[in-house]
């Protein structure tokens, strides 16, 4: 135990070590952001945005899919209220992700929390949550990881806007990097029968809802349904045991 504690990372480690851990953890995200960011930059530039505007958008919004949607809506002549409303709906799923992350942010000041919130994306959520559960992770490392991913997104979108993809389409299977990352992080999340049941229920709901409703409302609806049904089943099957424990 004593020797193990020497290897364990802590929130009080010197900054260079924290910085290195945070940057290292971000690599799959950065790899996955590169082709998407470049593609977005090219699209946005064709839609009439300057590299400066593209960079500003990536910094202010930092949410890939909603940026794609907004650029195509603006290209089609949509007004501000429509674009902003759509963005809100598309990105509302982060509300659930922040809720799940909140449990792990112990000892973090309100100011830092407000900065951390800016970096909550699908990818950083999935990665940070898994790391927090593993231990050896803390809010400082999480913050560095978020900002590393943010820099990769900003950089790749601006690069795309400046002139082209720099990558042949489909190169090295990079388009699949984020999907592979999500699949692996899902495997890490299957930590019990009811986690697996929840995942299956949510997957089924998401597919059905994705076919029924346009946009990305299915992600929020299926996550809520899946987690709630999963918990209900867990409670139902552990009635006897639960009473003994509590």
């Amino acid at each position: 135990m004593e020797t193990a504690s020497l290897d364990r990372s802590s929130v009080h480690d010197p900054f260079p070590r924290i910085f290195e851990d945070g940057v290292r953890a971000a690599w799959p995200i950065c790899l996955g952001y590169l082709p998407i960011g470049l593609a977005f930059g090219v699209l946005a530039q064709k839609g009439g945005l300057s590299p400066f505007e593209i960079g500003l958008m990536s910094l202010l919004v930092f949410a890939g899919s909603s940026q794609f949607i907004a650029v195509s809506m603006m290209g089609a002549g949509a007004g501000l209220p429509a674009v902003v409303m759509t963005t809100f709906l598309v990105n509302f799923r982060h509300f659930l992700m922040s809720s799940a992350l909140a449990v792990h942010l112990r000892g973090m000041g309100k100011g830092w929390i407000s900065l951390f919130a800016y970096g909550v994306t699908d990818e950083s959520f999935a990665m940070n949550l898994t790391r927090f559960q593993d231990g050896n992770w803390d809010w400082k490392r999480a913050l560095v990881m978020n900002q590393t991913a943010n820099a990769a997104w900003f950089g790749s979108t601006v690069l795309g806007g400046l002139g082209g993809t720099f990558l042949p389409a489909g190169a090295f299977g990079m388009d699949f990097a984020l999907m592979a990352m999500f699949l692996c992080l899902l495997v890490f999340q299957l930590r019990g029968v009811f986690h697996a049941v929840t995942a299956l229920l949510s997957a089924a709901c998401a597919v059905v809802l994705a076919l029924l409703i346009a946009g990305s409302g299915h992600i929020v609806a299926a996550s809520l349904l899946g987690a709630t049904l999963g918990l209900a089943l867990k409670k139902f099957f552990s009635r006897g045991k639960g009473e003994e424990r509590s």
């Binding site: 949550l129 899902l186 998401a206 987690a227």
Partner: peptide, 20 residues
């Protein structure tokens, strides 16, 4: 509930991208 939310979110992100 929050403990079961992450697998639910991840599947909801993944599944439609694979089979639609």
């Amino acid at each position: 509930w929050l403990e079961l939310l992450p697998p639910a979110i991840l599947s909801a992100l993944i599944a439609p991208a694979l089979v639609t």
